[in-house]
């Protein structure tokens, strides 16, 4: 499903070059639930960003579902993100000016041929899945951290993507909320979604099928 070949990422300033990822080779199969662990600054989020086509590798190749993405123009790349991938961020990244249901509808706004009515219906279904169908008209500032993360998950799954990339989805939550979010992700996995989750939490990592450990930009296990 996701294949990374000799992936490198270098962050350059005028004075310093930082190697964030160093010749990473990875293959994540369809339907797999993988966790990525490692100390802070080891390149976990960078790796996830590369998989999610949010950043451009300095070298190497990213393949999503058989397509090499490096040669894709902006539009097909955006379509690929829209149709195949859903993101869950540590700090939720909800749009505060939009209410819950409008936030969840967001990915479908950029999908061709989805009417407003269908969009709304799918968003409500996704919210129901995460147990937030009673808060559709609330704004993100009116929700708790756990609720925000559940909205973020609903947004990630509303377009039925095959891949969910979650960057420390429980990082800002207490353990109780964290396990609720984890349960939702496990449910999604059971339904066949491929999930890659960056985490610092060994307990959560143990719940996934495979853990990839990174150190100084390289895969170490």
């Amino acid at each position: 499903m996701i294949k990374l070949t000799n992936l490198e990422k270098v962050y350059s300033t005028s004075t310093i070059e930082t190697l964030a990822l160093n010749k990473v080779n990875l293959h994540i199969s369809k339907g797999e639930f993988v966790s990525v662990m490692g100390p802070s600054g080891c390149g976990k989020s960078t790796l996830l960003n590369m998989m999610g086509l949010l950043d451009i590798p300095s070298q190497g190749k990213v393949e999503i579902d058989g397509s090499t993405v490096e040669k894709l123009a902006d539009k097909p790349m955006a379509n690929l993100r829209n149709e195949k991938i859903g993101f869950v961020f540590q700090s939720y990244h909800l749009i505060n000016d939009l209410n819950v249901v409008d936030n969840v509808e967001l990915p479908l706004l950029y999908r061709k041929g989805v009417s407003g009515k269908v969009r709304r219906q799918k968003a409500l279904t996704a919210l129901e899945k995460v147990g937030l169908n009673a808060r559709t008209k609330h704004y993100p500032t009116q929700l708790s951290g756990g609720q925000c993360q559940r909205v973020a998950i609903a947004r990630a799954i509303v377009g039925d993507p095959e891949i969910i990339l979650a960057d420390e989805p429980t990082g800002n939550l207490d353990s109780e909320m964290g396990s609720e979010i984890m349960n939702i992700l496990l449910d999604l996995h059971r339904n066949g979604t491929t999930i890659v989750m960056v985490t610092h939490d060994e307990t959560l990592a143990k719940l996934t099928q495979r853990t990839i450990r990174l150190f100084d930009g390289s895969v170490v296990n």
């Binding site: 999610g52 955006a78 149709e83 909800l94 967001l106 990915p107 950029y110 999908r111 947004r155 377009g159």
Partner: peptide, 16 residues
């Protein structure tokens, strides 16, 4: 800026 990032992450093109 963050909103732009989110929209693009979920499929918005530069043109959109």
């Amino acid at each position: 800026s963050s909103e732009i990032g989110v929209r693009k992450a979920f499929g918005a093109t530069k043109r959109q």
